[in-house]
Amino acid sequence: MAFALPLAQSDPVIPEFGRGSSCVRDPDALFCWGWVKDNWSDTLQPALLQHIALTLIAIGIGSAIAFSLALTAHRRGWLTTPVVVVTGFLYTIPSLALFQLLVPFTGLTRTTAEIALVSYTLLILFRNMLAGLAAVPAEVRDAAIGMGMTARQLLWKVELPLALPAIFAGLRIAVVTVISLATIAVFVVNEGLGAPIYNGLQQTFSTELIAAGGLCVLLALFSDALLVLLQRAISPWARVARR
């Protein structure tokens, strides 16, 4: 590959600074907008999209697992403690270590990254879902059964809607956490905003890591705000003034 068109390459190669931007002349500047503009479409935007994909997959799978565990534990209380112990154990392992410990099993792949990210969502999502379901007032449950709801109707029409705010609170924490941790995934797979941050750390030119780090924080804050709005939209009853 490297020998493909050696002679046709007429432009000088300036790998450290991206395509000849104004920053080349001033490599000591803290931040250079010109670099961001020049590298948006080939570096930052793909990294951002990969980061979003990493996050969405982790949250999707994590929610599905946590949701089924919480629904089961809601009926069978004894399940709660073992699930909390195991997910709490996973949660405590530092991410850099966990990513590496998975490598012998799944290699330097996106799967490794996702398994680690999913494992960090479980404790948060499980606890909040269970707490939300458990917080449904006893009299509401009693009235629902007394009016002839089946167990399934009780769950879907009463318990889950009432647990939504707690579930969303968990979702918000999980999403922000995953966005933050997904940067560490760069140590096993060269994807997401971790890649430009890591790349930036290897050089004295700081614009790349500041831009990518900033994007990551913005993505977290934006997602959090989006979830707040979504929660308000689907639980209008939680907003009305109480007398």
Binding site: V186, I197, C216
Partner: peptide, 8 residues
């Protein structure tokens, strides 16, 4: 929580 430690 939103601050990625790597970014920080």
């Amino acid at each position: 929580r939103a601050l990625p430690s790597l970014a920080l």
